[in-house]
Every structure is written in C-alpha cells, then in structure tokens.
Write a protein that binds this DNA or RNA. Structure first.
Lengths: 199, 199
DNA sequence: ACCTGAACACCGTTCAAGT
DNA sequence: ACCTGAACACCGTTCAAGT
C-alpha cells in the first residue's frame, strides 16, 4: 500500500531508473498490450501480448505481476486528460445542461478505453487494493470539481451527491461498453440523468 | 432462428420428450450450473459444472452448445417472476415514485442473477442472436407496462422513453453487480434517475 | 439417441537456467 | 538485474467409441 522505496510520499508512477533492455521491453509490452486490448478487450491473451512484444512470458510477469498492473500502466497520461476535460467543461461558458453533457461524454470516453475497461474501472473505484484505485480518485475529484462548480451557481437539485452521479455515469459507460451503442444512443440516457440532477 | 421442430410458432421452452437418462443429466447440469455460477459468476468453469453434475464434458455440450444456452436454461421460471413483479408494482396503490422504486429494485434483483449476469443480459437486450434475447423482450415489455401506466396518470416528464429508462437501470444493475454494492447504496442512484423521469 | 472420456489447443503462471 | 523458454495446471471443445 505505502511506497517502500522512498521516505517521502511521492507519486508511484515517477520514472525509476531501468536498464536499457528492460525499458525497451517495458515499452514494447505496453504498445503490444494497447493493441491486443483494443482488439480483444481487457481479457485479451497475455501470451499474445508477450508474443507481439517479442519477449518471453516471464518478462511480462516481471514488469506487470497482474493483468491490472498492465492496464494501469496503459493509462499513463490518462489522468491529465481527465483533469483537462473537467476543467474545459467548467470553464466553457455554456449552460449547466451543456456543461454536464460535455463532461459526461468526456467521462464515458475516458472510461471506455477499450472493451471491458469500463467495468474494471467501476470496480476499481470502490476497491483500494486495485492498481487503478489512484487513477479513479482523480476521476472522482474531477467529477466533484464539475458538480461543485454547478452547485456554486445554484443549478443543482438539493441532495444530489457527486458520488452517486459518478456511479450513474459509470453505469451508463458500462452499458454502452457492453452493448456497443454509440454516442448518439448514449445522449438520451444522459439527458434523463441530467434532468434528475439539475433544478 | 425459427423453430424447425414444429410448423406452428410455439414457445421454444416447451417440454420436448427426452430419454429418461438425458432428462436426468439435463436437470443435474442445470443444478450444478446454478451452483457454480453463483459461486464463481457467469464465467465459472464448464468443466467444473460437468464434474459436479457427474457427467462427461461432451454431455454438457450436447445439451447446451454454448455457455449462453446454459445461462438461458437457468432462467426457466424467470420471465413469470419478472412479469409478476411489474404487475405488482403497477397495481400497488402507492405514489409514482414508490412504484418506480419498487419496480426498479425488482428489476435489478432479477438481472443480477449471479455475478456477471447483468452485463450479459444488457448485451442480450440488443442482440437478436443471443439465446437470452427472448427473455429480455419480456423484461422490456414489463418495463413498458409500468411506464405506460405512469404515463396514463400523467406522472411522467415529457419525452421519457421506456427504452432509455431500461438502459439506465441496466447500467445501475451492472454497476452494482461489478462493485458488489448493496440495495442501500443503490437506492440513492435510483432516486436521481427517478427525479429525471417524473414530472 | 445419448453418454463417455481421451485428445488437442490455448492460456495463465512459475521457475531454473542463462547473460 | 533482467531475460528466456520449458513446464505444469487448468479449461474449452471435439469426436471416436461405446450402450
């Protein structure tokens, strides 16, 4: 849980020194994983990933002890993009409804990295032991940021909690993910939720 | 797609004659599947199911060519219960909000047969080739029944479509399924959706 | 008509042997 | 410190041989 390598509480994903060949394999594995997960979803074969990266299966396990560690590593620059999109929705000078539509759509986009990702991330939101738990925390903050802003301008129905909204949108994302419906089919679902959120 | 055994369009799940040993194995397989799926979720081992039923793997495949066929068979008396619960919600003399709460809770209960079932059923809703497609149709009708009744008494916001509501609740169910949150955590999510549905 | 179980392919995971 | 690949266990799926 706590970092063992340092005494200060720095981020886990800083660049630790790595032997040149290790670094190369690490990068090749991530690239291969991105490919395979995109094609086959988050249950894509780890064997296949190692094969495409041109390394032995053991190398994959050395770098990523579990499948979720690999998925987590895939999301390196993910948090920045999430934060940026939340900020964009807040600072755009548009109606509360439009703000939520924009943010939720971005949210769903981020969470449906590839088939099966949405369920995994939903589960990770409530599971501290998941490697992706930290990333989900950023998503939670970003969502709170957007809702707090709307609350500030008095647009929110009383009693609406960010956590519940988050779970609802995750549910929508998971549904979209597993059925393969597109953005045009998602918007009507979001509209109902938004009606439930706004005054 | 169409039934080949009869010329009239009867239900698929009528009792066809079966040799005594076949019937016995069929029943044992269903019982074993119920066990394993409950313990391990819908991806539980088919091998394990055959083993617990005390039959060879080939026998399982003879009765249930795909995993989804097995899941479908597990839901034999499922539709009746769904229809009954929808009817109960409609005919109970309670507020529109309570009606929806009751129906949605029942809905989610039915759809979360065991871990992983909710996603499968969500996907089946939009996939005609799924063995569970027919069962989902009943769920769709039941849901329309409840919403139509509320529309009749003018309680619904204009523009609310049963299909969208259905998808939202399926999303909630899937989320609940994958995170393991209980009914008390689900209700606040439902409340927001209900605010979006009712006038 | 139905059942059995051996057989095959594929995958996750580990670990001894190498550099 | 890192990599390789053989090895093992487990699972899905098929099919020839049986009754």
């Amino acid at each position: 849980m706590a970092s063992v390598t340092t005494d200060t509480d720095v981020a886990d994903d800083d660049i630790r020194p790595m032997r040149a060949d290790a670094r190369r394999n690490y990068d090749k594995l991530i690239a291969a994983a991105r490919e395979v997960f995109t094609e086959r979803g988050s249950e894509g074969s780890l064997d296949e990933i190692a094969k495409r990266a041109g390394v032995g299966p053991g190398t994959l396990y050395r770098h990523f002890p579990t499948r979720d560690d690999l998925l987590d590593a895939l999301m390196r620059d993910w948090t920045e993009r999430v934060v940026a999109d939340a900020e964009a929705a807040v600072s755009a000078d548009i109606s509360p409804r439009k703000t939520l539509e924009q943010w939720f759509t971005a949210y769903i986009g981020h969470v449906t990295l590839h088939r099966g990702a949405a369920v995994k991330l939903s589960a990770a939101m409530d599971d501290e032991s998941s490697p992706m738990y930290r990333k989900c925390q950023t998503l939670i903050s970003a969502n709170e940021h957007v809702l707090d802003d709307l609350a500030g301008s008095g647009a929110l129905r009383s009693g609406v909690e960010a956590r519940q909204v988050m779970r609802l949108i995750s549910g929508v994302a998971t549904f979209a993910d597993s059925t393969g419906i597109g953005e045009d089919e998602v918007t009507p679902m979001l509209d109902i939720v938004i009606d439930g959120i706004l005054k």
